[in-house]
């Protein structure tokens, strides 16, 4: 079943659209990564699909319903999102944060939490391993724990679609794998349709079934991960020299940066280097072990 379909989507600001001519579709049980350098429009795309950008044009169907005709309450029943930055000013507990996901289902403001709500909240907390943290305040948690709490909130919304904006940013390798294993489980066992914006190509290639590459707000390439990943494509999108091979022990494609001496010597190197490159180096750490 196709859950999300976008045709010729343009979004951003009225006089300055950030993404253009975006066409994509996502089915239940699919895991799509939107990749591209910083500023290529990944976050804007995720916001646009939730009607959060000041300007939005094109055709988007969410579970066969026109995005423009859905109000925020209806939309909240169809897709849940994990934002890139989340820093509440006030000290809510983990449980309170996750319970807010149930808002769109509660019509009576004084009724409190129903048995059904309680069950969904408990399941979300347990799936993400945040059940033991439920009475803690959000600002007492580590980055990885916070990320899992936000995923728990998205799960408690009980939507067929999940959107995540850079779920691995600010996390170390161990947490990155934890988060992606969890997402993989949700895709496979819960049949969720998942869309992530991700700049870490190795993570995306290892876990996602489909990929889209964005450059300057346009889709450069898209398709099944194993057919799509190609050295030239990555070099074109990120403007860096890379090496792509299959890791013998995991069987997964692996991308590593190729050091070029000219780049390091150039005094204007900083301007030439895409700003995502330092993160790319960290993420390719695995391949240096070989």
């Amino acid at each position: 079943m196709i859950l999300l379909q976008a045709e010729n989507l343009q979004a951003g600001y009225e006089d300055r659209p950030v993404i253009h001519e975006i066409t994509l579709s996502l089915e239940a049980g699919e895991f799509l990564a939107v990749c591209g350098p910083n500023g290529s429009g990944k976050s804007t795309l995720i916001k646009a699909l939730q009607k959060l950008t000041p300007f939005l044009q094109g055709r988007v169907l969410v579970k066969d319903r026109d995005l423009f005709r859905l109000n925020h309450r209806q939309l909240a029943s169809l897709m849940a999102s994990v934002p890139q930055v989340f820093q509440p000013v006030f000290d809510y507990s983990v449980e309170e944060i996750v319970a807010m996901a149930r808002y769109y289902r509660q019509s009576n403001p004084f009724a409190g939490i129903s048995a059904e709500d309680r069950e969904a909240i408990e399941e979300a907390l347990k799936l993400t391993g945040t059940w033991p943290l439920r009475h803690k305040k959000l600002n007492q948690l580590s980055g990885g724990e916070r990320q899992r709490v936000l995923i728990a909130r998205a799960l408690a919304q009980e939507t067929p679609l999940l959107l995540l904006d850079e779920p691995s940013s600010h996390l170390d390798l161990n947490f990155q794998l934890q988060i992606y294993s969890l997402l993989k489980y949700l895709q496979k066992e819960k049949n969720k349709a998942i869309l992530v914006a991700e700049h870490n190509l190795n993570l995306a290639a290892a876990y996602c079934t489909k990929m889209i590459f964005l450059k300057e707000g346009k889709i450069v390439a898209g398709g099944q991960t194993e057919k799509l990943l190609e050295k030239n494509l990555i070099q074109e999108v990120f403007q860096v020299e890379v090496d792509l091979r299959i890791n013998r022990s995991t069987g997964l494609p692996e991308i590593s940066l190729v050091h070029s001496a000219s780049r390091e010597n150039a005094p204007s190197g900083l301007q030439e280097k895409p700003s995502g490159s330092s993160e790319e180096k960290i993420s390719t750490g695995k391949s240096f072990k070989e």
Binding site: K47, H72, P83, F86, P88, I97, M100
Partner: peptide, 25 residues
């Protein structure tokens, strides 16, 4: 205010988060 207190909880998380949780911000 008491009637809309849940909406204020959502608002206090940030406008975008409030919207994506279904609040008519």
């Amino acid at each position: 205010a008491l009637f809309l207190a849940r909406e204020m909880n959502l608002l206090s998380l940030g406008d975008e988060t409030a919207r994506s949780l279904g609040c008519p911000v």
